[in-house]
Nucleic acid binder design. Structure first.
Lengths: 160, 160
DNA sequence: GCCAATTAAATTGTGTGCAATATAATTTTA
DNA sequence: TAAAATTATATTGCACACAATTTAATTGGC
């Protein structure tokens, strides 16, 4: 592994005596606000998801199932960028609660099809208002919202 | 808990027959690209941090210690938006590896001061190139980079 | 000074994420 | 078609995150 050290100095603040490299400061990086905002957004969902007794990743899985009806573990993983090590236990918990069903695909026994049980389908109505409630917490104008969404999707393409 | 269901329809694509509410689609939300990009960025760090045998949150802690020299667990937690339930075990692992020191503050025995051991200080040189190596992976122009950083920091303020 | 309230860490328990490995089914290839 | 390669999940182990609780130290009010 080898990479070059030079070029491109962003707006810097020479604060601490022991920080000769402003690029190593949290303030000047993209990664930290990304990491922190992502966790804060998950936390912003929590009071809304608590009513449905769902975690945020569980909610994402249900969003996909509400939209597509049925998906394989692989299909869920491709869309959420999660692997079976994360999804399998998560799906088993949803199955135990009677929200989703898991059964081997008859045409390809390697594949496990995830479907919605009635209780999981019913949760959809309760979830209808969540996206807008979240947007309200962001306090972003539609233009800001779309700009940020566009940039993140661009970076998502770049990295995946 | 009560919130209002209406208003503001973003660009929608009526794809699946079973999705009457486009706001419930992953595509149209801000939260998912945020969540996915955050994880992908952490993954992009990994080959670089592997050389230092650090995880991404451990790297963030060291960034702060390199900049500030010494901080309490509370100080680290305020800056990283992490609590002691996350930081205590993480710091103990760094201590066991001889990278940081943990000792009670003599003036306030409730507080634990985290400092750098020589090995932890030495890692700083190896880390110098990481921020730029990461930026290269993003493939963003300086203008795009600054725009995204600004928007995320704005949202960070909004949510914290 | 004494006691209640506050504060800082640590602990406990649950749920992700994800690398690495294992297992079983399917497809490819010689 | 039998062996090899590939594919889809499951399992294991480790490290976060974070809510909730506990413990110990400090502060504030009287």
């Amino acid at each position: 592994m080898q990479y070059i050290c030079n070029v491109f100095q962003p707006a810097m603040s020479q604060s601490a005596a022991s920080a000769p490299n402003p690029l190593l400061q949290l303030e000047n990086q993209l990664c930290f606000p990304l990491y922190a905002v992502s966790r804060l957004v998950t936390k912003a969902y929590q009071p809304l998801l608590e009513e449905l007794e769902l975690t945020y990743p569980q909610y994402l899985v249900l969003l996909l199932l509400w939209e597509h009806g049925e998906l394989s573990v692989k299909g869920l993983g491709e869309r959420l960028l999660l692997d079976s090590g994360t999804l399998t236990p998560l799906l088993k918990r949803l199955e135990q609660r009677g929200l989703v069903s898991r059964r081997r695909d008859a045409r390809d026994e390697r594949s496990v099809r995830i479907g919605l049980q009635p209780a999981g389908e019913a949760l959809r109505h309760k979830a209808t208002c969540i996206p807008e409630a979240l947007m309200a917490k962001f306090q972003l104008s539609p233009a800001e919202f779309e700009a940020l969404r566009g940039q993140l999707n661009h970076l998502l393409t770049q990295l995946s």
